[in-house]
């Protein structure tokens, strides 16, 4: 008798979910944000369908303010594994004057992330989209189903979700409706890191510490990733050894000072950390139910 470890059980569950969706949905897609959770999802997807490649494309919602390292990692990964990549981007945002410096975070995330995502899902007729949401991230996520239904306008109704029993998922839906599927719902941040270490999954270098040009603003340490970063009067970039626990648009994502250059250092830091991983995201702040409101709007 061989008892499975918690990571083996989580892996088997995620693979089962990927296969159910591919068997029952007509046109699935995977939301690929290039972050650590997406990297784990991609790894699981490759395992689920091996020796076939994942039978669905990757969709990256690019805000135009992504870290350069992240885009490079994305393109390298897509090439190496022979994946099909679709990039969704709000091309008009710049003309409309939407940018992370002047635009409020609610409008910014709506215009740069939620809207292009919804448009891409509709344009390609995707009826199922894998997302990397985890239940341990946030209170509103803790109640999210693994198969989460969206109406034709991509809205989430927290009061009208299907019960999920055993490992049986009901993927039936009406025309125009779609499902958001969260194969790593039951993974915690620690599980993700342990799995990345164990499986030697290649992740964006931004998770590892390196001297980077930074400025301190509103209690956050921001990295000056390119020359579009608008410095305020008196601000002068300072090179500090920093890394990221979570990745978003670079002018909105706080770095942490760190000496962690190896995987084990990262895990060690995480285990001893006193702040939650979303602390570094300006987008999640606001009233405590804000994640729920955004989800209702169609955010992942």
């Amino acid at each position: 008798m061989r008892s499975l470890t918690h990571l083996e059980r989580l892996e088997a569950e995620s693979i089962h979910i990927f296969r159910e969706v591919v068997a029952e949905a007509e046109n699935p897609v995977m939301l690929y944000s290039v972050g650590k959770d997406s990297s784990v999802m991609l790894h699981l997807a490759r395992k689920a369908f091996y020796p076939a490649p994942p039978p669905f494309p990757m969709l990256h919602v690019a805000s135009g303010w992504d870290f350069a390292d992240l885009l490079a990692h994305r393109d390298r990964t897509v090439r190496e594994y022979g994946l099909r990549l679709i990039i969704a981007q709000n091309e008009e945002a710049e003309a409309q004057g939407i940018n992370p410096f002047d635009t409020g975070s609610a409008l910014y995330s709506q215009a740069q992330l939620t809207d292009p995502l919804k448009r891409a899902l509709t344009a390609h007729g995707f009826d199922a989209a894998f997302g990397g949401g985890r239940r341990d991230e946030e209170k509103a996520r803790a109640k999210e189903r693994i198969f989460s239904f969206r109406n034709a306008a991509h809205r989430w109704d927290p009061k009208n979700q299907r019960p999920e029993l055993w490992n049986l998922y009901n993927a039936k839906k009406a025309k125009g409706e779609s499902i958001r599927v969260f194969p790593i719902s039951n993974w915690t941040e620690l599980d993700i890191w342990q799995y990345i270490a164990l499986e030697k999954i290649d992740i964006v270098p931004l998770y590892f510490s390196k001297p980077r040009p930074t400025v301190e603003r509103d209690g956050m340490l921001l990295v000056v990733d390119d020359d579009r970063f608008r410095l305020e009067p008196g601000e002068e970039p300072v090179t500090r050894p920093v890394r990221f626990r979570t990745l978003g648009c670079y002018p909105l994502t706080g770095a942490t000072e760190s000496e962690a250059t190896e995987m084990n250092d990262i895990i060690q830091e995480m285990l001893l950390a006193t702040g939650s991983e979303r602390q570094g995201r300006a987008i999640d702040k606001g009233q405590s139910a804000s994640m729920e409101d955004k989800k209702a709007e169609g955010y992942f």
Binding site: T5, H6, L10, I267, Q268
Partner: peptide, 14 residues
Amino acid sequence: DIEAYLEQHQNKSL
């Protein structure tokens, strides 16, 4: 000793 810790924790059950 993070390595010893991780070693120990890879084999947890659920």
